[in-house]
């Protein structure tokens, strides 16, 4: 199936169309956000602290007098960028390792999977926290760390997807022909596990966005005063009783993006006929 046919099939399903619509909306906002934002995200208006939504400030202002609308518009950019980079890293190293161990099997397979099992049993957030404690906060450090820890679940997926094929006749034939391992991986296995990887990649993207927001919420991700949904929600905690709008808008933005992504990924999985959709990062 080519890209256009997949797209057409995807939007013909209600949940696919809605999900894709929400995700596209968020991506467009992220791209054009800086151009349409009415204020500067760090501008503090001391005369307008914690103001309710009004014509001047559509979503109100936060405890430093910053415009919540502007910050909500821009709040997903950094998380999405980090997530994109980390997802690529996770997919590349996870898929490479997963496919190779599926093909080679035996001792190597056993060893790699044991190690992956053990690493998976440390909650991801602790792995990240160890790194953040040692390297200090900073979003550049987050990309490799998240890419590494989220690659673990890609190994499982790529391995089990590839295992469905390694015993098939066409792989046997390729082996009998004396094809090199690299050829088998790139020419025979990769095209067959591509769909599973695409679905997993889209899912990973949403988990990593969640992870970045959670880390920002804990003060370990995006550094203030940069706008980020997680950071905004964390900021709003002390003033929630008097100014609930400071929390509601970023929560709405983040939740809608994640829900949209989930809807879109579910439909994508159905379109591609992939039945291995991991609903959560927990195996």
């Amino acid at each position: 199936m080519n890209g256009l046919a997949i797209m057409r099939d995807l939007v013909s399903r209600p949940s696919g169309a809605i999900g894709l619509g929400i995700v596209l909306f968020h991506i467009i906002i992220a791209v054009i956000g800086p151009a349409i934002a009415p204020y500067d995200y760090a501008d503090q208006d001391v005369d307008a602290i914690l103001q309710a939504p009004s014509a001047a400030h559509w979503f109100g202002t936060d405890r430093l007098g910053r415009d919540v609308f502007t910050r909500t518009l821009l709040g997903g950019r950094e998380a999405m960028m980090i997530s994109t980079a980390s997802t690529i890293i996770a997919l590349v190293w996870g898929a490479a390792l997963g496919i190779v161990v599926a093909l080679v099997g035996g001792r190597l397979d056993e060893m790699v999977m044991r190690c992956a099992d053990a690493l998976m049993s440390i909650p991801w957030i602790l792995i990240v926290m160890i790194f953040v404690a040692a390297l200090g906060t900073g979003t550049t450090a987050l990309v490799p760390v998240l890419g590494f820890s989220y690659g673990l679940s890609v190994i499982y997926l790529a391995r089990s997807a590839a295992l469905d094929f390694v015993t098939r006749d066409f792989i046997l034939a390729a082996r009998a022909r004396g094809e090199r391992r690299r050829t088998i991986i790139f020419q025979e296995l990769l095209p067959n596990v591509r769909d599973s990887l695409a679905v997993q990649g889209a899912m990973q993207w949403s988990w990593i966005i969640l992870a970045v927001s959670s880390l920002s919420f804990l003060g370990m991700g995006v550094a203030p005063p940069a706008p980020d949904w997680g950071l905004m929600i964390s900021d709003a905690r002390g003033v929630m009783a008097s100014a609930p709008w400071t929390a509601i808008w970023p929560m709405l933005a983040l939740s809608s993006l994640i829900i949209g992504l989930n809807l879109a990924v579910d439909s994508l999985a159905k379109v591609l006929g992939v039945d291995r959709v991991q609903r959560s990062p927990v195996p």
Partner: peptide, 22 residues
């Protein structure tokens, strides 16, 4: 259930605070 497991923990926690506490 899908909604509850999809949105991040700190968002569901904040929603609960907004509703039941605030």
């Amino acid at each position: 259930a899908i909604f509850a497991m999809t949105i991040p923990e700190f968002v569901s926690a904040t929603i609960l605070i907004l509703v039941f506490s605030v």
